[in-house]
Design a protein around this nucleic acid. Structure first.
Lengths: 220, 220
DNA sequence: TTTCAAATTTAGGTTTGGCTAAAAATAAAT
DNA sequence: ATTTATTTTTAGCCAAACCTAAATTTGAAA
């Protein structure tokens, strides 16, 4: 199911006002937060209830559902990643980023966000110091493994290198592997531990165990 | 006046179909291009006519106005800059960028586009080889001057450096000047040609004529 | 417990951007 | 020149997301 831009904004507001689903939120509070009239909020709450991203009982208030939280966190994640981008790459001041990020957060493209995340080096906090949820909507960071320790058919994303010498990075670049690349282990040679890897579902490449042991992968 | 997303898309389609305002375009062609019904197109053409971005005579066809062209080129500029970003920075393949750029092109923020342009080093072509219009909507590239040759009160944007040694770039970074910064000459010392510069309407900084002569500015 | 003020919802209206079906204008063919 | 086919426009509807004004519900105070 897909949410409209307005629905995303409501969910985000509800998530924030309820402090992540803890506190209860009033129609008036939501109206104030997103600058609309309470009547419009009532209308939207009914719709959000039908889509089951909140549990809504007229006059009695609402509760954000697990599904709803996922959507809200996804939007927050995108917002904060864009903020990092604007500040670190485009030299925006920390206080100039909000309204632009407010627009950028609604761009639909999971690939874009994955790549942006990688490009920014998987930041954990935005320029205001707020934590950036991971792609599953939580802050728990999953373990990274060395590429040479993965098994055939396992997939993941290159997130870091152990040896960050220019020579090694140039080599990775040349063969088409880079921070953020999605990879899959196609084959593993028992004899010397060398690997055949599929990069971004397109290129295949071979690498020695030595090289693989310098590549850190976030498994998926 | 501000255009809606739909209006921007229509204008872009009209601009493309008319080959920049040369050929005439039919209602049916537009409908086919943007995947709507001719009836919806008629409706929109009336609105675009009222907003004077096209000249529209029922049944007789339409002509994009100069204002309309400006808007169309602005959207095309944004689209192509984002394509460069996606390919060069986020490792998108040249054929994966279109639909994402189609969304990104509607983000409203002149500052964002200025900074993005600078960040990408003022590319003249997108990954498909199509030219990127400048911020005034044309391809004519304006002359760059050395910062030391500018007069007091003149403004512009840093677009390049002559000496691109790491040391010089580090220096620029340290003092808060960078490719893409908007600057204004506040004062010029006759005696030695040194300058006082306002960067991004915030920081002021002093620099020798020697340093200034290595900074290229696009005047505005 | 009844009353009343605040919060919330409903009813009905607007704009934007679509749609279908029907009408009107233009262009092509006999 | 008249009929026919094509293109384009109008008329009338729909959904999303807002609005105002009028009900309704809740809960706090008398």
């Amino acid at each position: 199911m897909d949410l409209t831009v307005a629905e995303e904004n409501y969910l985000k507001a509800i998530y924030h006002l309820s402090d992540g689903g803890k506190k209860s939120v009033s129609t008036n509070d939501i109206a104030a937060e997103i600058n609309t009239k309470p009547a419009s909020v009532s209308d939207m709450l009914r719709k959000l209830g039908e889509k089951e991203v909140i549990e809504y009982r007229k006059y009695y208030g609402l509760q954000i559902t697990e599904t709803g939280k996922r959507y809200a966190l996804q939007t927050i994640r995108k917002h904060r990643l864009w903020e990092v981008f604007l500040v670190e790459k485009l030299n925006f001041a920390w206080d100039e980023v909000h309204e632009v990020a407010e627009q950028l957060e609604h761009i639909q493209s999971p690939l874009l966000i994955q790549r942006l995340d990688a490009y920014l080096n998987f930041p954990k906090f935005d320029p205001h110091g707020d934590p950036i949820p991971d792609e599953f909507g939580d802050v728990r960071s999953r373990p990274r493994v060395q590429l040479n320790e993965m098994d055939v058919d396992q997939t993941g994303q290159i997130v870091a290198v152990k040896d960050s010498s220019a020579a090694f990075l140039r080599y990775l670049d040349k063969v088409g592997a880079y921070i953020g690349a999605r990879i899959k282990v196609l084959d593993k040679v028992e004899f010397d531990g060398s690997l055949e890897i599929l990069v971004d579902q397109k290129k295949t490449l071979f690498m020695s165990k030595d090289v693989a042991s310098n590549i850190l992968v976030l498994q998926s």
